[in-house]
Design a protein around this nucleic acid. Structure first.
Lengths: 330, 330
DNA sequence: TTGTAGGCGTTATCAT
DNA sequence: ATGATAACGCCTACAA
């Protein structure tokens, strides 16, 4: 009752193991009739190749590892969807290795894990290649960065500067003071991300170009309760009408709550621009920046797959740009 | 510059590969002096064993696969933490295979994926063993259910009935009408979970035992905006003071928002009991049910590891019980 | 076009 | 206590 091997298939089909291997990896030159015979034998035995053996024999294991920060946000679900879609088309499996904290990272850098043994590695949000270099560790398989930018590596990333710029352009056209709510960035030097910094840069650039400046600016942690408190502070100090760029939908949602609870009218007294286009954004009429996250993931998969297949060209960087979705709040 | 192998280590240490393998798996009988020599050589070469080769050689790969529904909730992060802690102690790696939808599941059932080839399999939330049986597929490695219950398999699960009961007992002691807010359960027959149904059963049982009954009951989707709307409806219809069992903290949070925005006093006009003890629950003073999720994951890891090590006893089921954390809202 | 044989990195079974 | 050596399941020359 043990799992059938390539030998079993060869025997049943009356061919050599080499031939079976050839049809398995559709290496050219297999007579159609024998190919069919082999396929039939495989089906009959319910044979599936052993990825470990494949890998060990110097071939591919058809597995891609994804190093992903553990965040309970919609963003990563969408990213995963895009990645999976791309890899699945090429019949690759993806295994996720959650990066919970720094100690976890150390383990991966220890380089004995399975993550390290797949055909390719995708690193989301954090550019871990730096670390590999610093420690003079060699990456033994092709890698791609997604939602991050790095020199010398293929990468697919979101242009948060452009996103912030779009928000700024739009806000500059509104009457009344312009405010902003930013998100506190992580302090861990390893796990640091520049998204909010970028959104801010783009936003300010756009305002400047339009001859305007930001009035009040607040920073909050990425937590709806905290954001709500900060939003209250903002509403205390502003005059109306005003426009607020809340650099993440979660923040925008909290602000929206606070606005409504004060009997103010969103889109009129307070114009709100979010960022992310969360699933609920449409229902709440939130004007926000939509990010093509799935496309970014899909593209990253394509970049990596080309490397896995032997592509040797120069590193490629693919930039994705958010689009402004105008709804009722602004 | 290729990765060092056991051969390299053996050569450097001046011993045979067999000896190196022995110290690697600390099989008995290796002279202390040679063991040290081998260890030194491994360190020097920065050697780490190849899990694929280990697996192929009939040994173990020291990798566990976790089949996990992709959900952006704190719950799964905590669960993962517990699982990882358990496996890590035994020096096992864990690879996560995300279950996004039914088609994904089909692939895993196809049984050729790497997920299927680890030393053990943990299935979270969904009892996939049923499916394996229905299709007469054989699981080639030990499996454990976590956050799910199943006959004939080891499992570690949360007693949501008991949790609901605790909420009911507590609510029954309050003055005024008792209401409840439930969460709409998924409709996919495969991906169905009974947690909210269980919480409800326990809750009603407790009320009955106390000679009371639930007054208003609402159902909402698992979304804070929708919940807020439902909460508003509830507050329109009730009299005060009242007590509300919100069967998930996210729902409780939305209700709390609505209560505050109406100038009502939580814990006085409206007593709120949540479920989950989310990170923010303490800051908001939410009375809620705390689930020992990490412990559950840790225990599941232990159960699986014992199987992987050859334990043949009858299936074991470990039940974990939530505890009521009383804060300001009730 | 196809079969045979060597090798991938380990573990396990022999001897010694 | 330890060193050869045969598996493990597959891929890839090489030969036919």
């Amino acid at each position: 009752m043990r799992k059938p091997t390539i030998q079993d298939v060869a025997r049943l089909a009356g061919v050599g193991v080499g031939t079976v291997s050839r049809v398995l990896n559709n290496h050219a030159a297999v007579k159609e009739s024998t190919r069919e015979a082999v396929l039939k034998a495989m089906a009959e035995l319910d044979y599936t190749p052993n990825p470990h053996a494949r890998r060990i024999a110097g071939g591919k294991s058809y597995t891609i590892s994804v190093l992903l920060p553990v965040m309970t946000t919609e963003f990563y679900v969408r990213l995963l969807n895009g990645l999976e879609a791309g890899f699945q088309e090429a019949r690759y499996d993806v295994a996720i290795f959650p990066l919970m904290d720094r100690s976890r990272l150390e383990r991966y850098l220890g380089s004995h894990t399975l993550a390290y043994q797949a055909d390719g590695l995708v690193m989301a949000t954090y550019n871990l290649t730096k670390m590999f270099n610093e420690r003079r560790l060699k990456l033994h398989q092709p890698a791609v960065l997604v939602d991050a930018y790095g020199e010398g590596v293929d990468c697919a990333f979101m242009d948060n500067v452009a996103g912030g710029h779009l928000a700024g352009e739009y806000a500059a056209r509104m009457d009344g003071p312009i405010h902003a709510m930013w998100v506190e960035t992580e302090l861990d030097q390893l796990f640091t991300t520049r998204v909010f910094e970028d959104r801010r840069r783009g936003f300010h650039a756009a305002l400047t170009e339009a001859g305007r400046t930001a009035d009040l600016e607040f920073t909050t942690s990425f937590d709806s309760y905290a954001a709500r408190t900060v939003a209250a502070g903002l509403l205390e100090r502003t005059t109306f009408p005003c426009t607020v760029f809340a650099s993440a939908d979660m923040i925008a949602g909290a602000l929206l709550d606070e606005v409504l609870s004060r009997g103010l009218v969103p889109g009129q007294d307070v114009k709100i621009i979010g960022f992310d286009d969360q699933p609920w954004a449409e229902a709440r009429g939130l004007t926000t920046l939509h990010q093509p996250v799935e496309s970014m993931g899909y593209e990253a998969a394509g970049l990596l797959l080309s490397r896995v297949s032997g592509f040797k060209g120069a590193p490629r960087a693919r930039k994705f740009t958010p689009t402004l979705v105008i709804r009722q709040t602004a």
